[in-house]
Design a protein around this nucleic acid. Sequence first.
DNA 1: ACGATAGGTAGGAGTTTCCCTACGCGTCAA
DNA 2: TTGACGCGTAGGGAAACTCCTACCTATCGT
Lengths: 116, 116
Amino acid sequence: MNGTGTAAANDRVFAALANSVRREVLRLLRDGGPQPVQALAAHFDMARPSLSEHLKVLRDAGLVSEQRSGRQRIYRLEAAPLAEVQDWLHPYERFWRDRLKGLGELLDRMPDDDAS
Amino acid sequence: MNGTGTAAANDRVFAALANSVRREVLRLLRDGGPQPVQALAAHFDMARPSLSEHLKVLRDAGLVSEQRSGRQRIYRLEAAPLAEVQDWLHPYERFWRDRLKGLGELLDRMPDDDAS
DNA sequence: ACGATAGGTAGGAGTTTCCCTACGCGTCAA
DNA sequence: TTGACGCGTAGGGAAACTCCTACCTATCGT
């Protein structure tokens, strides 16, 4: 419907990223590959059930997936939602590109012609 | 400290983006240029003070700036934090590029050699 | 000076987040 | 089968979020 996923889906992804614990989990999965919850939990001070809830938030956002292996749950990074974030970001790129070129400054600072 | 802003700053930016009203405000500023609050408020059903609070969240995240002009406040998109989001995203890019190439599949599905 | 306009702030209600401590369920080892 | 291990869920409490209705300040037009 939207250019980049539904509004609710974007809400879920951005909200999931709006927490340093969850961003760190993603980084650990990115740099360390798929891991069981234990291995992830070792990096945090919090009680393990709290981390479980963070993992649920990440799962609901589609940012990680789990695969059962014996009594372990192996979590893996799923980057598709991040690709959508990048797509969402695209239309804004010209704003910082323009800034760097020092050009858009004047153009952007005063196009008050059509705003009522 | 971090590669891309402090954790708290990223929290603020991602949290600001985790709301469809605020994302729509950014889109309006991107497509319509700098605008007063009135012009933005016209696009939403909510009471105007509620939108004011959304604008405060965006301001605190550094995503918009205001410039007073008479009794109006002209809001402008500030894309720098979005550029930092893109930077934050970069280390994850290979994950969806690999997926597209259909290569990383096998590589990523089982590098369980160093995870304790 | 007076009223209308633009927009922020105060405070409150309902919901959600984030952490905790129990506890339940499935799996492995003895 | 019995116990330990790996993880999730339940439920609760503190704080934050999101909306509202007043209300306040500053500016413009008359």
